[in-house]
Design a protein around this nucleic acid. Structure first.
Lengths: 114, 114
DNA sequence: GCATAGTACATTGTATTGCTATGTATATGG
DNA sequence: CCATATACATAGCAATACAATGTACTATGC
C-alpha cells in the first residue's frame, strides 16, 4: 500500500476534533447557517465537510450549549437555521486555542530535531 | 456543563490521528521500544498515551508497513520490542508534515481574523 | 410547463480509533 | 513476600467522520 492511500485514511482521523475547533473559530466572526458554513470552511481550509458530518456536529455543539440556533425565513428561498456562538462556546474556544498552540509548538520542536 | 468538561472530552478527539504523526516524528530520530516511546511522548508533548492506545496503534503502523519491529533481549530485564521506521513510513511522514503545515496556517488565519 | 441543478436541513449505518480495564511476565526495593 | 516499576498485549466501549439517502424548496434554461 502506497503512502497516498495511507494519508487518505489518516486525514479524516486527523480532522477529528479539529472540525469543532474550526467551526467555533468561524462562528466567532458572526452567526452563520450550516450550508454557508460548509462552503466557508472549504474556502478557508480546503477541508470538504460532508453534510452528514456537519449537521450532527452542529447539533452536538447545540446540545452542549456552545451554540444557539434561530430559524430565519425570507420572502424567497429555503428557511435557514442560523448558528450563533454562546459565552460557553467562546470560553471553550479560548481553551481550544491554548491546546492547539501548545500542541503546535511541541510538534514544531520534534520537526526541528529531525 | 462547564467548558472544562467539554475540553476534557474534546482533547482525546483532537489527538486522534495526531498520535500517529507524533510517533512517526519520534521514530524518525531512531528506533525505540513502546514503553520508552510513551515516556518520550509525554516528555515532549505533555500527552499521556495510555498503553491500550499505544500498542494497538504501533501494530497498525506495522500492519501498514510504516514500521518494522525487532525483539531485543538483554541479560537483565524484560525483552523489548524495538520499532523502526521504514521508507514508506518516512514517505508518509513527509506528507503528514505538509498536511499539518497547511492546516496550521489555515487555522492561524482564522485566529487572526477574530 | 418542466427538467435539471442548486440550496438547505436531516438521519441511518459503518468503520476507525482512543481509552479504560484487565491480564501476563519479569525485576527490584523494603 | 509484597508493592512498585518495567514491558507488552487484548477485549470492550464510546465518540465521530463519512457515504448514502431522503425531504423540500428555488432558480435557470429550454
Amino acid at each position: 500500500m502506497g503512502s497516498d492511500k495511507i494519508i487518505e485514511r489518516w486525514v479524516p482521523q486527523f480532522r477529528k476534533g479539529l472540525l469543532e475547533f474550526i467551526i467555533l473559530l468561524k462562528l466567532q466572526q458572526g452567526a452563520i447557517y450550516g450550508y454557508e458554513l460548509a462552503i466557508e470552511i472549504k474556502k478557508l481550509t480546503s477541508i470538504e465537510v460532508a453534510e452528514g458530518t456537519l449537521y450532527p456536529l452542529l447539533n452536538r455543539l447545540k446540545r452542549d450549549g456552545l451554540v444557539t440556533t434561530e430559524w430565519q425565513t425570507a420572502e424567497v428561498g429555503t428557511p435557514r437555521k442560523y448558528y450563533k456562538i454562546t459565552t460557553l462556546g467562546l470560553e471553550t474556544l479560548t481553551k481550544m486555542k491554548t491546546v492547539w498552540t501548545n500542541t503546535h509548538s511541541s510538534i514544531l520542536n520534534m520537526v526541528m530535531q529531525s
